[in-house]
Amino acid sequence: MSDDKPDWERISAFSEPKLSPGFTLWRDFMRWQRELNARLRPLDLTQPQFAVLAVCAWLSREGKKVTQQEMVDFLGMDRMHISQIATRLERSELIERRMASTDLRAKHVQVTEKGRTLLEKAMPIVEEFDRAFFS
């Protein structure tokens, strides 16, 4: 009978997952996101939704028209993931998306009044949580 176990000493520089910086980062990120999601749940927001809403508001703070692609570039997230989140935010009337007049492939994204009101409630929750989590 053959041994189906990986030869860990040969394939990994680490004797256990906790010693791997990548694993540790992933585990800590998942804990941060899970705990932040719990705090945002009463507002019916997830951490990724908050990030998209906040970045949209931030990038358009001086009246600039922001495209969905600019948000993708800023956040460093997958374009399809941003599109799915934006669709959910649009259904909740937190953002509006319109086709750009100069490039029909581009969509301008704008935070609605309802989105701004929600962001004003969510931002202090997120910042307070971040201070506590990272202290």
Rank of each mutant, 00 (worst) to 15 (best):
P6V: 03
W8R: 06
W8F: 12
W8K: 07
W8N: 05
W8C: 01
R10A: 15
R10M: 14
R10N: 12
I11Q: 14
S12R: 06
F14K: 07
P17K: 15
K18L: 09
K18W: 08
L19G: 09
L19M: 14
S20V: 10
P21L: 10
P21H: 06
P21S: 10
G22S: 08
G22T: 12
F23Q: 00
T24P: 12
T24A: 15
L25E: 04
L25I: 11
F29V: 10
M30K: 09
W32Q: 09
W32Y: 11
W32A: 13
Q33G: 04
Q33D: 06
E35H: 01
L36H: 00
L36I: 01
L36A: 08
N37I: 03
A38W: 01
A38E: 12
A38M: 01
R39S: 07
R39F: 01
L40M: 08
R41D: 00
P42E: 04
L43C: 02
L45A: 05
Q49I: 07
Q49T: 13
F50K: 00
F50N: 01
A51V: 02
A51N: 11
A51L: 15
V52F: 05
L53Q: 08
L53F: 07
A54D: 08
A54M: 11
A54Y: 11
C56K: 12
C56E: 11
A57F: 02
W58V: 11
W58P: 02
L59E: 11
S60V: 06
S60G: 13
S60R: 15
R61G: 13
R61T: 11
G63S: 12
G63K: 13
G63R: 11
K64D: 10
K65E: 02
K65P: 01
K65N: 04
V66P: 06
V66F: 00
T67M: 01
T67R: 05
Q68P: 14
Q68E: 14
E70N: 14
M71C: 12
V72Q: 01
D73G: 14
F74K: 08
F74W: 00
L75F: 03
G76P: 03
G76Y: 04
M77F: 13
D78E: 12
D78H: 13
I82Q: 02
S83T: 14
S83K: 13
Q84K: 08
Q84Y: 03
Q84D: 02
Q84E: 10
I85Q: 09
I85D: 10
A86S: 15
T87H: 10
T87V: 11
R88L: 06
R88Y: 02
L89S: 05
E90R: 04
E90N: 05
R91Y: 06
R91E: 11
S92V: 01
E93C: 07
E93A: 13
I95V: 15
I95Y: 03
R97C: 07
R97I: 06
R97D: 04
R97Y: 02
M99S: 08
A100C: 08
A100Q: 06
T102D: 15
T102F: 13
D103A: 13
D103R: 15
D103K: 09
L104I: 12
L104C: 07
R105M: 08
A106C: 04
A106G: 02
A106Y: 03
K107N: 05
K107L: 10
K107A: 06
